[in-house]
């Protein structure tokens, strides 16, 4: 500590020092300007989020009054964006109801009407395209999905030598997606529907990686919805328009089924291959099918996910 630090001896050193600190400041200032300018695209972040939405509580913690306000906010947002006043409800599961879906592989002709009815019913993004149902064309005798053709454009279906396997969310009893979500944004309800709180999802896509059925979809871009095809009958956990950067998936048309109706994919099926109902009701169609049909399949049963979606055959 005895020796003082070396002091530059030339007379210009003070000026040199101040010139350098001036240059340092200009470089820093210029750097800060570039930093601010680099964020310039953020000016276009118009409806990314609002204070109200940013601070919104988790679905399960919302009081009824808060829920009313949230639904009103969503209605207002949809109206502003699409010019249509929707009716957004928060439908809760019914007691004594557990939904099960059955699909008759003998009947399915692979016409993809279910795919598009679902898109229309659930206000799915047309651009970029998001679809909850994927119909696989498989050669007779094999359930190996790697042999499947997804984008068949046959003139006429069904084609000889093939059968068709529509796949959508299997509403598993032991869902892989729910377990992995770091923020509880997706969960299984008492009626068996696995739902997503679109206002809570952080968009990490871990659930998408976990799902063995490739049933989950992510909003990579802002959903493109034509206003003229908006379905105004909406529900919070169901078909209200989604935001950029969140997950979504089939929810058995919660806005219909929790109001007692059949899902849209079922009603549009021209061959009646799709069956839906309450498995806890012994008189329901699905109870009959699971009781009477000898062969039915849960897709990838070995995963232990125990789907509520059953594929069956007539003969």
């Amino acid at each position: 500590m005895a020796t003082p630090p070396p002091v530059p001896s030339d007379k210009t050193s003070d000026r040199a020092l101040s010139r350098r600190s001036f240059l340092r400041s200009t470089a820093a200032l210029s750097g800060l300007t570039a930093l601010a300018a680099s964020l310039s695209p953020l000016r276009e972040l118009d409806d990314f989020t609002s204070t109200e939405q940013f601070l919104q509580k988790y679905y399960k913690e919302l009081t009824p009054e808060e829920m009313t306000r949230v639904l009103a906010r969503i209605e207002k947002e949809v109206e502003r964006q699409y010019g249509i006043r929707p009716h957004v409800r928060d439908l809760r599961p019914m007691d004594g109801v557990e939904f099960v879906y059955c699909l008759n592989l003998t009947r399915c002709i692979g016409c993809r009407k279910c795919v598009h009815a679902c898109v229309a019913e659930n206000n799915l993004s047309r651009d970029p395209e998001i679809q909850y149902i994927r119909v696989l064309k498989l050669p007779h005798g094999s359930l190996d999905v790697e042999k499947a053709e997804h984008k068949y454009t046959a003139d006429q279906v069904p084609e000889k030598g093939f059968f068709y396997l529509p796949v959508q969310c299997q509403q598993c009893r032991n869902p892989a997606c729910v377990k992995v979500c770091p923020v509880h944004a997706t969960w299984q309800e008492s009626d068996g529907i696995t739902v997503i709180d679109y206002d809570w999802c952080i968009g990490c896509r871990y659930c998408e990686a976990a799902c063995p059925y490739w049933a989950r979809r992510f909003n990579f871009a802002k959903p493109g919805l034509p206003a003229e095809r908006i379905n105004p009958d909406m529900s919070y956990l169901g078909n209200r328009p989604r935001k950029l950067g969140v997950m979504e998936k089939c929810h058995f048309c919660i806005q219909r089924t929790r109001a007692g109706r059949y899902p849209a994919c079922l009603e549009v099926c021209p061959v009646g291959a799709r069956k839906f109902g309450n498995i806890l009701d012994p008189n329901s169609e699905v109870s009959y099918i699971l009781r009477e049909k000898r062969v039915f399949i849960q897709l990838k049963e070995e995963m232990g996910t125990s789907p509520r979606f059953f594929y069956y055959f007539d003969k």
């Binding site: 300018a37 680099s38 964020l39 310039s40 695209p41 953020l42 909003n219 990579f220």
Partner: peptide
């Protein structure tokens, strides 16, 4: 900064 600019584009347009 170039990376930050690219990221702010990603924020606006999405992934």
């Amino acid at each position: 900064l170039v990376g930050l600019h690219a990221y702010s584009r990603q924020l606006v347009d999405g992934l």
